[in-house]
Design a protein around this nucleic acid. Sequence first.
DNA 1: CACACACCCTGTTTGC
DNA 2: TGCAAACAGGGTGTGT
Length: 333
Amino acid sequence: MPELPEVEVVRAGLQPVVSGAVVSGVEILDPRSLKRHGGPSDDFVDRLVGGTIDAAVRRGKFLWFPFEPARAHDEPLALVAHLGMSGQVLLRDRDAEPDRLMRIRLDVESPAVGPIRLAFVDQRIFGSMALDETVPTLDGRPAGFAGPRLLGSDPDALDARGHRDVPGAVGTDADPADWVRRVPHQVSHIARDPLDPAFDERRVIARLLARRTGVKRALLDQGLLSGVGNIYADESLWAARVHPEQPTESLSAARARVLLAEVRVVLLRALGEGGTSFDAQYVNVNGQSGYFSHSLNAYGRQGETCPRCGTPIVREAFMNRSSHFCPRCQRVR
DNA sequence: CACACACCCTGTTTGC
DNA sequence: TGCAAACAGGGTGTGT
């Protein structure tokens, strides 16, 4: 469940369960799911067991759990999870039948719900878990979103750009905990996402216009802005009436602002519908699917009519994937 | 530094 | 029905 809304749905589902939870047991069923862990499986297990998870934090498509090891460590650690193309984190009873494609099993004692299992399930093994050191954020702002509820679920908390920035809430500037302003080393090169209160819109637009590539490639560059993948790139470009191959250097700042505004609208709408799901592969922590697939205007709709003008949506090969757009509404100009 | 591309993997769906 | 090919929403490393 790979893009920002789907990862946020998972994060929000885990946050109340993992906060303050003590890890009681870890089993690596497939070591390939630890490929981003800088050490052997034994090291992963040994350092995790007995420790306490502080929270569930997300930046873009990356999810991590700030973590206090059983024995005081010189540097704060984080358990980093990336879902890749097909990863899931599912909450299961410990005596439940194991999920067939479970790669990592984490048993925790949760203050909120008691003993429970976090099952890392991943068909294609593009996802991973890892223990990683953390570094302070460069701008001194919170490293990601760690709120107690789904991002965007409280309309009163959103500012004009769709940002949530509530003083005093976990994961905002007012939170004194150390982990709030520390980011896992392997996430530190990932840019902030467009729903992050610390997202620097002017700087991102300046960098976007300075590139010499197609605008969709830029939208997918997680070092420029994070959280947008193939589905939401296509949906945002459709909403903003921008062709995916529109050269970035030909965009006006005004058009770039409109595009980023549409990115936010699309991400927030998807959040409101629990994310996009095409099948059982993409589910929340309880195994339930979202509904945004019913709201798609371009993605996966090749041959069907554009909801705006009635022209058939086309699909074109793009970076080993596909772009879907309306050839009439979205022209290179 | 920025960009384009190859690569990593497996299970399910499709088309013959 | 059986089989192979196509397909899938990710990030990273490398070479230019």
